[in-house]
Design a protein around this nucleic acid. Structure first.
Length: 252
DNA sequence: ATTCGTGTTTCAAA
DNA sequence: GTTTGAAACACGAA
């Protein structure tokens, strides 16, 4: 998970430092609170779902990267803000400018209804059954319901269906215990691997003209390519408004 | 030139 | 409860 990788990156550079200046290049980032951060000290960096929380000595900064937000040591993109400390700069880049920064007393003020975190543990079948209880629609969009399970997005939902050999259109009530167990393992596998990839390479697979040659996923954005498991062809269709990639050969 | 699709998530409407 | 579309916005690809 890129957000967890970002959390560690920020923690290394900001925790224990005092903020010297916030240069808010694009005001649209700023959703609420006082943007005057000079003199505040960063006590720690935490994550909840895809929110980052920079705990300050007075309140904190809640940051959501949305689609294209990212932190970097060099301003090599659409620069929206720069956070300066005594010993360095942290730049915030965001092509589409959907990201949100909130200066509030507590992170809970900006969180919607969020279910529990599925990671870093391996959640057992009973956990998934409880989280999905009452849903009757397709499993893949259900994985993305933040009020049921926090932090799974489109890629995770796609990849974990593939890992669990599960047809993304399967109705939630017809998923059996053995499959839920596979889902739990698949979810842990995917998120752990996504974090390792992000720690190593960042989001290089979709950045600066590289095309898809660095795509680290099994089926995401691989329409027309052979399935790594059964060599069937990966297909794409739209489900609940989002692109869904899957292998009709081995996902049942 | 124009349209389409995109890593997120919430919301309203049907 | 479910499903869809729209909303933030920018840009590369078709």
């Amino acid at each position: 998970m890129e957000v967890e990788a970002t959390r560690r990156w920020l923690d290394q550079r900001l925790t224990g430092r005092a903020i010297v200046e916030l240069d808010l290049v694009d005001r649209r980032l700023w959703k609420c609170g006082d943007p005057e951060l000079a003199g505040r000290r960063v006590l720690g960096v935490r994550r909840r779902a895809k929110w980052l929380w920079l705990q300050l000595d007075q309140g904190g900064l809640a940051v959501h990267l949305r689609m294209t937000g990212r932190f970097a040591s060099q301003p090599d993109g659409k620069l929206r803000a720069t956070l300066s400390t005594e010993d360095g700069h942290v730049h915030f880049l965001d092509t589409r400018c959907f990201a949100e920064w909130h200066h509030v007393d507590a992170l809970e003020q900006v969180l919607g209804r969020l279910g529990p975190e599925p990671w870093p543990g391996v959640q057992p079948a009973a956990w998934w059954q409880e989280r999905m209880h009452g849903l009757r629609g397709a499993i893949k969009p259900a994985f993305m319901k933040q009020d049921r399970i926090a932090g799974l997005g489109n890629i995770a939902a796609i990849e974990l269906c593939w890992l669990a050999e599960l047809d993304p259109t399967t109705r939630v009530p017809s998923v059996g215990a053995a499959t839920w167990t596979r889902v739990g393992e698949a979810c842990h596998d995917h998120l752990t691997r996504a974090l390792a990839d992000a720690l190593r390479d960042g989001m290089r697979y979709l950045n600066d003209g590289g095309g898809d040659h660095d795509n680290p996923f099994y089926v995401y954005r691989r329409e027309g390519q052979p399935c790594p498991r059964c060599s069937g062809l990966i297909e794409r269709f739209v489900q609940a408004g989002r692109g869904t990639f899957w292998c009709p050969g081995c996902q049942v």
